[in-house]
Each structure stands twice: as C-alpha cells, then as structure tokens.
C-alpha cells in the first residue's frame, strides 16, 4: 500500500497495469487497493458525465430539455456517453 501511495504522489500518470508491474503485483491487487483508497477519500473517481449543458444549447439543435438531469446535448457530447474510455482516478487527499 505504501509503495502504491509513493507512486501516486510523484505526479505521473500511470495505468493500473503499470502500477502492477512497478509494484510487482497483479492488476487485481491494484484494483482492490484503489477501491479502498477511493472509499477512504484518498483518490477520487473522475466522472466525465456532464449532466446537462446548462441550457446554452439554443443553437446546437440537439439538447433535450426533458427535465432529466442526465440529458445531454446530443450534438455537443458524444451521445451522452463516452465510449470505452476506461476509468480515471485522481489523487485528492494525500
């Protein structure tokens, strides 16, 4: 765990696989530790869901003001979801 924290602190981006390689462990071990750190508030999952475009989309022609919080601007955000981008966490509480 301390090895992981040390790596997270140095400011470089790493993938789960790279963390596992550097710490000589498995991606599953890294994943459970990330889950722990997320629950402890040390890291935070980044959510790219932009819940709405703020009603600015008068001219973009695609926004659904359906009252649904999650409605996204079709012609602004790639159909509301980001395809196959993987998860991202940032370190917040060290």
């Amino acid at each position: 765990m301390e090895g992981l924290i040390k790596l997270l602190k140095d400011g470089h981006a790493r993938t789960i696989e790279m963390l596992a390689l550097e710490l000589d462990t498995t991606p599953a071990d890294i994943k459970r530790k990330l889950e722990f750190l997320e629950n402890t508030g040390i890291i935070k999952r980044v959510s790219f869901e932009v819940s709405s475009c703020g009603g600015n989309c008068g001219s973009c022609g695609g926004c659904e003001h359906s009252g649904d919080e999650k409605a996204t601007c079709k012609s602004c955000m790639p159909s509301g979801e980001v395809l196959n981008m993987g998860e991202m966490w940032e370190v917040v509480g060290l």
Binding site: R14, E90, V92
Partner: peptide, 14 residues
C-alpha cells in the same frame, strides 16, 4: 503546486 498523479485504467481493446 504539487501535482498528484492520475490513475487510468486502459480499457481492453475491443
């Protein structure tokens, strides 16, 4: 300021 790292899960290619 100190910039802490980022962890990215590279999704499998499909």
């Amino acid at each position: 300021e100190d910039r802490y790292g980022m962890i990215m899960e590279l999704p499998p290619y499909h």
